[in-house]
Each structure stands twice: as C-alpha cells, then as structure tokens.
Simulated scan of single mutants.
Amino acid sequence: MLHNTISPPLSNDAPVVLEMSHVSKSFGAVTALVDVSVKLRKGEVLALVGDNGAGKSTLIKVLSGYHKPDAGTITSKGRPVRFQSPRDARAEGIETVYQDLALIGDLSIYHNMFIGREYHKRVLGMRMLDNDRMRGMAEEYLSTLGINIPNVNSTVDRLSGGQRQCVAVARSIYSSPSVLILDEPLAALGVRESAHVLGLVQKLRREREVSIILIVHNYSQIFEVCDRINFLHSGEIVLDAATSDITEEELTRTVKSGLGRLLRPEERAVPMAATP
C-alpha cells in the first residue's frame, strides 16, 4: 500500500500541457459534446464528473484520438494537433487506461507490461523474446511505483481488481507520458483496492510530472487526489472549480440542482434535505 502524504500545491505558473477549445462532436442526430473547453496544466489532477451519457467517454476518446471533433481545436504543449488515430495521441504523450484495462489474463504480469513494445535478443541467430530483461525491468518499475506484486511471473487473472488497475496504470506511464487519462479506475473496486489505486495517483500527483484526467463518481475520492473539477452535463462543461474552492457537499448540491454553476453563498446555506 502506498502512503498518502500531503501533495505539494500545484504551481500557479504551471504551463498548460493539453487544451480543448470549443470542441463539439455529434453522432448522427445525437450531440455528444457542445462547445467544450478543457485545460490541463503540468502536474495537475483533473476530475471529470457527470452522469452516464453526459459525454465523458466521447471527450476522452477525442483526446485519445479515437474520435475526430466536428468543430474546435486541440492544443498539446502549446501546439495545435490533429489526431488521426490513437497512435497519434500516444506519440504526443497521451496515454489512456480504459475500464477494460486491455490486459491479457492468461499472460504473465511482466509480459502484459511490455505488450506492443517487447524486448528481444538474438539466440543462435534467432530473434527471441528477452524474458529475463522484461521480467527484471517490470519488477524494478513496479517496485519504484510502490506497487506490491509478489511475483511478476504470475498471470494477470490471479490478481485482484486493484492490482490489475495498478499494473494497467504502470504499463501506461512506463512510456513516460505527459498526460494520463484514467477512465473510472475505481469502478467495482472495494475500499482497500480503491485506496491502493488512489495511492498510486497520489504518488504521481506528489511528483507533479504527469498530468492526469480522472473520471470518477465517488466525490470523496475526488477531494483526496484531485486539484480541480470539471462537471460535464448534457455534453457541456458547466462547472470548472478548484477542489479548494468547493466542498464535497457543495459539489453534490450543484450537480443535483442542475444549475451548472457554483452555488451562491445564500444557496449554499440551504440544508441538503431542502434540495429537491
């Protein structure tokens, strides 16, 4: 388990590493995103919240290169970019861990760590997998991240849900991305497993080297590890607030109210029970 120590505050002059400006996306008659603008600064952990169907999956798939926006622009490290495929996004330093994790259950942990970027060696003139090298590198890297996996020779299907999430995250950040997108990494995890994954996110946040977009439904977890919150409603970003400027109760009221903005002081004073 990773120790959850206090993270340093995000620098006020941290540069913007990824930005969506006035992005819209439709699928036939269904509008998924409407004039969406999102900024992500270096080392920032941004929570993306919203009900099912709000457009969260479409937003991250646009950033990941799976969908092309109908309108608007994407800027990476100050340069406008146009992603034709997920490979283009990864080349720009954007890695995404989806809910299905894309792990192969009957392969070893260390083989999963290097899927698509395996190391090879020559043996008697034949090109073969360098399993010893990959095994040693996986052990060292997981240990560096504080991920406790007793045996990297074990197959992934023997791991707990939390361990699988951590392996998927570790695999993604092994390529040194500038942006990591985590699509509901805590879904269906128990308290202990969620704590392990949150501990890994917190470690990355403390180091402030990777910028993270975290899709999550549990608001208390947002306030544990995130710097800022974007609330997506019916395809629009209707709330952009620092976690230091809003409480969990206020966020809950704002989301339930459907007002699409931070509540005024007089509105915040209304008891929760009085909110429809």
Rank of each mutant, 00 (worst) to 15 (best):
N4M: 15
P8G: 11
P9Y: 03
L10I: 06
S11D: 14
S11C: 11
V17Y: 00
L18F: 04
A29I: 11
V30K: 12
V30W: 04
S37M: 08
V38G: 06
V38M: 09
K42M: 06
G43M: 01
V45H: 01
L48V: 14
G50F: 00
G53Y: 12
K56P: 06
S57G: 14
T58R: 02
I60Y: 05
I60Q: 00
K61N: 08
G65P: 01
G65T: 08
K68W: 03
P69L: 10
P69R: 01
P69Y: 01
P69D: 03
D70K: 12
T73N: 09
T75R: 05
G78T: 12
R79V: 13
Q84S: 15
P86M: 10
R87W: 13
D88S: 10
A91F: 12
I94E: 06
D100G: 07
L103F: 02
D106F: 00
L107M: 15
I109Y: 00
F114W: 10
E118C: 07
R122C: 07
V123L: 14
V123W: 06
L124D: 14
L124T: 10
G125E: 13
R133C: 03
G136T: 09
M137F: 11
E139G: 12
E139V: 11
Y141Q: 10
G146F: 04
G146I: 11
G146T: 10
I147A: 05
I149W: 05
P150V: 08
N151M: 03
V152Q: 08
N153E: 08
L159M: 07
S160D: 11
G162V: 07
Q163T: 08
Q163M: 11
Q165N: 08
V167W: 00
V167Y: 02
A168Y: 02
R171Q: 04
S172L: 01
S172E: 01
S175T: 14
S176I: 04
P177A: 11
S178P: 01
L182D: 02
D183W: 00
L189M: 08
G190D: 04
R192C: 14
S194C: 09
A195S: 15
H196S: 13
H196N: 13
V201A: 04
K203D: 03
R208S: 11
R208C: 04
E209C: 05
E209K: 05
E209R: 07
V216Q: 02
S220D: 15
I222P: 06
V225E: 02
C226R: 00
C226L: 06
R228A: 08
I229T: 09
I229F: 15
N230K: 14
L232Y: 00
H233V: 12
E236C: 12
E236M: 13
I237D: 00
D240Y: 15
D240Q: 08
D245P: 05
I246V: 14
E248S: 10
E248H: 08
E249H: 02
L251C: 04
L259Q: 11
G260C: 09
G260Y: 01
G260P: 07
L262Q: 13
L263R: 02
E266S: 15
P276I: 14
